[in-house]
Measured scan of single mutants.
Amino acid sequence: MTSCHIAEEHIQKVAIFGGTHGNELTGVFLVKHWLENGAEIQRTGLEVKPFITNPRAVKKCTRYIDCDLNRIFDLENLGKKMSEDLPYEVRRAQEINHLFGPKDSEDSYDIIFDLHNTTSNMGCTLILEDSRNNFLIQMFHYIKTSLAPLPCYVYLIEHPSLKYATTRSIAKYPVGIEVGPQPQGVLRADILDQMRKMIKHALDFIHHFNEGKEFPPCAIEVYKIIEKVDYPRDENGEIAAIIHPNLQDQDWKPLHPGDPMFLTLDGKTIPLGGDCTVYPVFVNEAAYYEKKEAFAKTTKLTLNAKSIRCCLH
């Protein structure tokens, strides 16, 4: 018999989150649709729960009410004593943790798909938090293969000092899905179709896995975050240069030392320094102006996964 890495157990509980950011409308629209008619997301033997994560922000069509829901799922915020004085999103995070967690427990949901849009030209993107997770690498390989020839990129946010504390991190297997470009507060049919297909293929993978299909060893190309880059700023902290036209919409493309990065209003080009080629992502993302992030630098690498098969009882 072929030796293989056996994944822990079959997958039982899956959640699909929309509206973690209330103005990213593809996930909101799909989740609302699936709450009314969820036939397309159901798979035999699998509990799939669509869920609106930040209903107040969705109602106002804004990213958040008090603070970013997708950055506060750490033990400090989840452990705060519940009171009306807490920011709305912290209270909501505790409610979500109660419903789908608790985080880092045996009772937490197996998989959470968190649906997002970006204003950046990132196409279909899967966000991975753990480079050693054979199950998710296999799932992402399946999704990428199923979507081809449509490109699907994998963004690895594993980093020693950049801690995200994402909404989906309460699950055993957290999956971020990011599709763009799409303006905030807008629905685009092409973007919706791409996100819908990503979810379909992900659920198909889980179904095949649960039925005992063995997935042979595989490898995927990923883009691992190195650092986030702020806009150049003046002495008052105001933005002093904008994304250069040569960099705009060039997510995932190589940016070499000396290539144009920013452009000042008086026409001066600010190039990339250093001696390493990087791959920019979230270029000129609207939501990241407040976070002082013009783009993120990534490096390209390959992740390998062992063969996996479900432990059938």
Rank of each mutant, 00 (worst) to 15 (best):
T2R: 14
T2L: 13
S3L: 14
I6D: 10
E8W: 14
H10I: 15
H10C: 11
I11T: 05
I11K: 14
I11Q: 04
Q12A: 09
Q12D: 10
Q12N: 13
Q12T: 14
I16Y: 01
G18S: 05
G18K: 02
H21W: 04
G22Q: 09
E24G: 05
E24V: 01
L25G: 15
L25Q: 08
L25M: 10
T26K: 01
T26D: 00
G27T: 01
V28H: 12
V28C: 13
V28A: 12
F29A: 08
L30K: 02
V31M: 04
K32I: 03
K32P: 02
H33G: 14
H33L: 08
W34C: 02
W34D: 01
L35K: 13
E36W: 06
N37V: 11
N37T: 09
N37E: 10
N37I: 05
A39P: 07
I41T: 05
Q42L: 09
T44S: 14
G45I: 03
G45T: 10
G45M: 05
G45H: 10
G45E: 06
L46K: 00
L46R: 00
K49T: 08
P50G: 05
P50A: 14
P50N: 01
F51D: 02
F51P: 01
I52S: 01
T53F: 04
N54Y: 04
N54S: 15
N54W: 04
N54A: 04
P55F: 09
P55S: 07
R56F: 08
R56Y: 14
R56C: 14
A57H: 05
V58E: 06
K60H: 15
K60W: 11
K60R: 13
T62N: 14
R63C: 12
R63P: 08
R63F: 05
D66A: 11
D66E: 10
D66L: 02
D66K: 10
C67G: 07
C67T: 11
D68F: 04
N70Y: 05
N70E: 09
R71C: 11
R71P: 10
I72L: 14
I72K: 11
D74S: 12
N77Q: 08
L78H: 13
G79V: 06
K80M: 08
K80A: 14
K80E: 09
M82H: 13
M82V: 15
M82S: 09
S83E: 11
E84Y: 14
E84H: 11
D85T: 11
P87F: 14
Y88C: 09
Y88E: 14
E89C: 05
E89P: 05
R91E: 13
A93I: 13
Q94D: 11
Q94S: 06
Q94G: 07
Q94K: 11
E95Y: 09
I96D: 13
I96Y: 05
N97E: 11
N97I: 11
L99G: 08
L99N: 08
F100Y: 11
P102K: 15
K103L: 10
D104F: 14
D104A: 07
S105R: 11
E106I: 14
E106V: 11
E106K: 11
S108E: 13
S108K: 12
Y109M: 09
Y109Q: 04
Y109W: 06
D110P: 05
D110W: 00
F113A: 01
D114L: 04
H116D: 01
H116S: 10
H116Q: 11
H116P: 00
N117Y: 02
T118M: 06
T118H: 04
T118I: 07
T118C: 06
T119W: 01
T119Q: 04
S120Q: 01
N121R: 06
M122E: 01
C124G: 05
L126R: 02
L126S: 00
L128E: 01
L128T: 03
E129K: 05
D130S: 09
D130H: 05
R132M: 12
R132Q: 12
R132P: 07
N133Y: 04
N134W: 10
N134E: 06
N134T: 07
F135R: 00
L136M: 15
I137S: 00
I137A: 03
Q138L: 00
M139K: 02
F140E: 00
H141S: 08
I143F: 00
I143K: 01
I143S: 00
T145K: 15
S146C: 14
S146V: 09
A148F: 08
P149S: 04
P151I: 05
P151T: 14
C152L: 12
Y153D: 05
V154G: 02
Y155F: 07
Y155P: 00
Y155M: 08
I157C: 08
E158Q: 07
E158A: 06
H159F: 06
P160I: 10
S161V: 08
K163M: 13
Y164T: 15
Y164C: 13
A165E: 12
A165F: 14
A165S: 13
T167A: 15
R168L: 12
S169D: 10
A171G: 13
A171I: 04
K172V: 04
Y173T: 15
P174M: 10
I177H: 02
E178D: 09
V179C: 07
P181N: 02
Q182T: 12
Q182F: 01
Q184V: 10
G185L: 04
D190W: 03
D190L: 03
I191N: 03
L192M: 15
Q194R: 11
M195Y: 03
M195D: 00
R196E: 02
R196W: 02
R196Q: 07
I199H: 01
I199N: 02
I199G: 01
I199D: 00
K200V: 10
L203R: 01
D204M: 02
D204L: 02
F205P: 03
I206L: 15
I206G: 00
H207E: 11
F209A: 04
F209D: 00
F209R: 01
N210I: 07
E211F: 13
E211Y: 07
G212K: 05
G212F: 04
K213S: 06
K213T: 09
F215M: 05
P217M: 06
P217S: 10
P217W: 04
P217L: 03
C218E: 02
A219W: 15
I220K: 00
I220M: 13
I220G: 00
I220A: 02
E221R: 03
V222N: 01
V222I: 05
K224L: 02
K224C: 04
I225Y: 11
I225Q: 08
I226S: 13
E227S: 07
E227M: 04
K228T: 13
K228V: 08
K228W: 15
K228I: 15
V229A: 07
V229R: 03
D230A: 09
P232V: 04
N236W: 07
N236P: 02
G237Y: 04
E238A: 08
I239N: 05
I239G: 02
A240N: 09
A241E: 00
A241S: 07
H244G: 00
H244N: 01
N246K: 14
L247C: 03
L247A: 02
W252P: 01
W252T: 10
W252N: 02
W252H: 08
K253W: 05
H256Y: 07
H256E: 12
P257L: 04
G258Q: 11
D259L: 03
M261W: 01
M261G: 03
M261N: 03
F262M: 05
L263H: 06
T264S: 12
T264E: 05
T264Q: 09
D266V: 04
D266Q: 07
K268D: 09
K268E: 13
T269W: 05
I270M: 07
I270V: 14
P271E: 08
P271G: 10
L272M: 14
G273W: 05
G274K: 04
G274A: 05
G274M: 04
G274Q: 05
D275K: 13
D275T: 14
C276I: 11
T277E: 12
T277S: 07
T277V: 15
T277L: 09
V278P: 02
V278G: 01
V278Q: 04
Y279D: 01
P280L: 02
P280R: 02
V281G: 04
V281A: 15
V281I: 08
V281C: 12
F282E: 10
F282W: 11
N284Y: 01
N284L: 03
E285N: 07
A286I: 05
A286C: 12
A286S: 09
Y288M: 13
Y288E: 11
Y288P: 11
Y289N: 13
Y289G: 15
K291D: 11
F295D: 01
F295G: 00
A296H: 09
K297D: 00
T298K: 00
K300A: 05
L301K: 10
L303D: 00
N304A: 11
A305L: 02
S307E: 15
S307N: 07
S307A: 14
I308F: 05
R309Y: 06
C310S: 14
C310I: 09
C311M: 09
C311N: 13
L312M: 07
L312W: 15
L312T: 14
H313Q: 07
H313R: 14
